[in-house]
Amino acid sequence: MSITDEMKACLSTAFSPTQLEVIDDSASHAGHSGNPGGDGETHFNVMIRAQAFAGMSRVARHRAVHTALGDIVPRIHALALDIDV
């Protein structure tokens, strides 16, 4: 399973999102640190909307996503998050 699909599965289970996009942006960073060979799954952008985030601070929302992604986070180089209800 690709990391993109792993992330979607984790986030869907944890938050039952109304919208979820996981974009593998690794190719944009080919040759940079984190993806020196250009073929890695390294840089990801996540857009998620879920009622589960209601009432949570920005930091708390990010922490909840980090927790849901578990061991995926240390395996990738960069993770940009756009989180809202």
């Binding site: 930091v59 990010h62 960069a78 998050l81």
Partner: peptide
């Protein structure tokens, strides 16, 4: 900070957030 990514911004000793949060704020 129990936060897995860099950069991290601190104001008066308190963790504020990383790049996405600072951009939004």
């Amino acid at each position: 900070s129990d936060w897995p990514t860099i950069p991290q911004l601190y104001v008066k000793g308190e963790f504020v957030g990383g790049c996405d949060i600072i951009t939004e704020m």
